[in-house]
Amino acid sequence: MSTENVAASGFGADEQDRGRRFLSALASTGTIFILLLILWVWITILNPTFAEPGPFLAYLKRSAPLVILAAGAYFVLVSGNFDLSVGSLVTVMVVVAARLIEGEPSRTWPVILLLLVIGAVVGFANGFISTILRVPSFITTLGMLLILNGAVFWWTGGAPRGALSDNFRSIGRQGIEGIPWIEQLPWSVLLMFAIGAASVLLMRADFGRQLIATGDNERAARLSGVRVDRVRILAFVLSGVLAAVAGILLGGFGGVSAQVGKGLEFDAITACVLGGVVLGGGRGSVVAAMAGALTLEALFTWLNLQGISGALEDTVQGVIIIGAVGFAAYRLRGAR
């Protein structure tokens, strides 16, 4: 076949050429990075202060929760499932935190621990029902979204009570002060990079390779010894825990309301799709998914600067998700 540039046996000559391999990898998944760069430049042209350290860090800080959610969504998507429950899970986090902390700083850390456990438990439930009980994850997590929404409403009686403590809020708001040139390095940005790095390492490790192989071909993975149910459940757990982290950050940014997490599940999936993650599993990189989240946030910023109403955000997102999947389908057709 023409696609096989054949050496006598073993691998062709370009194996050693790491540079070229990197470039070709960039060409195949790199569209999103180019798009992100273009948007950054464009925004800077419209508003030159964007490129200054302060405003740029503010943008990263604003993006951090979505980037973290996108990483969570990636694990689930690449294994061939959906997690639609993360938005309402974020709301649960904020509402539960406010109610239990009641402004008392000493309760902050135990409550944070509890939130992470809640995230893991909800994720495990999603995973268990979707794999062992064979309910399609689209339905499981849609059901979970409704269950959590209802639970929040019932528990708060419509209006969230309580208050977050200052040290809880500082995670989303503050950072390391007194750094030259950028002045403050926000905790959320640090957390974002840490989670990003951890996600990349995880995807390179045995777990990640088994996860993506499961999403690509479940039967082949199982017959190779992969415990497919287990890796998929773990992906849901990761998604739940990362939703908890995002909830903690968002609690610091904004007020306590029953609306905090609304629609975030779709933002996260849009970000992944924008980054080239294929719905159905088996394709895409976690870095690209997170870059997709940064791109989405940049796009919202750009729309703002263009004076386009925030009300149109949903519409733009709809166009993006269809466009991105269409583009991917077109490219796959080209490759065939």
Partner: peptide
């Protein structure tokens, strides 16, 4: 790489 040689695989590279 050794597996590719043992099985006489013909391909561009491991990726």
């Amino acid at each position: 790489k050794e597996l590719a040689e043992v099985t006489e695989l013909r391909a561009r590279g491991p990726e």
